[in-house]
Amino acid sequence: MWLYSSDIRHGTFTMCLGIPMQILGIDGYTARAAAKGVERDISLFMLQDDTPAIGDYVIVHVGYAIQKVSEEDARSSWELFDQILAESDA
């Protein structure tokens, strides 16, 4: 969980679980993206075959979008991460 735990929490992150982010702006292969109010620059280099547009949701893994995802799936993933983080803090 690149975004939450690495940047905000205890300095660790999970390497095989990506998190969904919404694309706010695109400049070449770099996109500005947000998840739950936190913004980051991400790379779209791996989505060359299926380029996302502004407003789309993507799963982001170590700073790279690996796949597009629907808004509904993005929202349910965010709920899941909140639950996991609540547990890790307990």
Partner: peptide, 17 residues
């Protein structure tokens, strides 16, 4: 550079770019 495919593929993207 540790990791499985999900982490190694972004590294590959970096090298290709």
């Amino acid at each position: 550079a540790a990791g499985f495919e999900t982490t190694t593929a972004p590294l590959a993207a970096l090298l290709q770019e």
